[in-house]
Amino acid sequence: MLSYILRRIASTLPVMAIVALFVFSLLYIAPGDPAVVIAGDQASPEDVERIRQSLGLDRPFLIQFGSWVWRILHGDLGTSIFTNLPVSTMIGQRLGPTLSLMMVTLLLTIVVAVPLGVLAAWKAGSLIDRAIMAFAVFGFSLPVFVVGYVLAYVFALELEWLPVQGYTPLAQGFWPWLQNLILPAIALGCVYIALIARITRATMLEVLQQDYIRTARAKGLGQGGILFVHALKNAAVPIVTVIGIGIALLIGGAVVTESVFAIPGLGRLTIDAILRRDYPVIQGIVLLFSFVYVLVNLMIDVTYTLVDPRIRY
């Protein structure tokens, strides 16, 4: 198992290298002289030259790439052009809110979607099943920002149960922290709840047809035991896969959600960096997201082997 994980990590290295190359090339893919692009519209030729010198843009591409990678391997993501702060510091400041939002959303999604899917599969064809599936279609079709604004209007402005927007760090208490995350998590989670509930239902329906479920019934097992001990674990591989893909998609969703609810997270930082053409920051964030995605994929693959003894690497 350990050797498998090590081999998997090793095999992600080329992927990360290609991602790094792409991220670095961002600057050069954009039309025009990178120094001019970074300097912006109002810059004087001297400013452009200063930027060119400070970023080493006058050196050959491969040497620049090499030294950039070298610095990254030492934990140096560069310095923001706009704030002059190290990119790693800026990302570090914004990591907490985004991680909190993603965690709460993920937890909410799994806790709500999987039981809903199981229930729908168990009662397939019934009114409950149809209601859950109707809700799923509804959840699919609503954009995050619409759900976000509606939720904020109803629960924050009208009912005043929860704060409208903002973020409170966990250090200031669990409830204040959670209070600020409930509405964004629901808004962001809607699509994933719908998606995972549907996948769970479909997979469970197939598993419930299997001979071993009939065996479980023949043993006299109760409905709960059949559904959760024998069926759900067999349905787990596709569900885990979709949850993993969901995590990757959450990263994109978080950008929008953070804007709607004014959460000072990585999503906001990304938008700000793009608007300011703060390339080192953009590069740092994209690199981080790619890294997280590769890590999540690795975790999914490892989870398969835990769930299904037939999967061996």
Binding site: Q210, D211, Y212, R214, T215, A216, R217, A218, K219, G220, L221, G222, H230, K233, N234, V307, D308, P309, R310
Partner: peptide, 24 residues
């Protein structure tokens, strides 16, 4: 019903491999 199934009356099936839970 459950006191009957698997206790007083039980069943074995065709295709035994499919009749057993593959991951238990």
């Amino acid at each position: 019903l459950r006191q009957l199934q698997g206790a007083a009356m039980s069943m074995i099936f065709q295709n035994p491999r499919a009749a057993l839970n593959p991951i238990r």
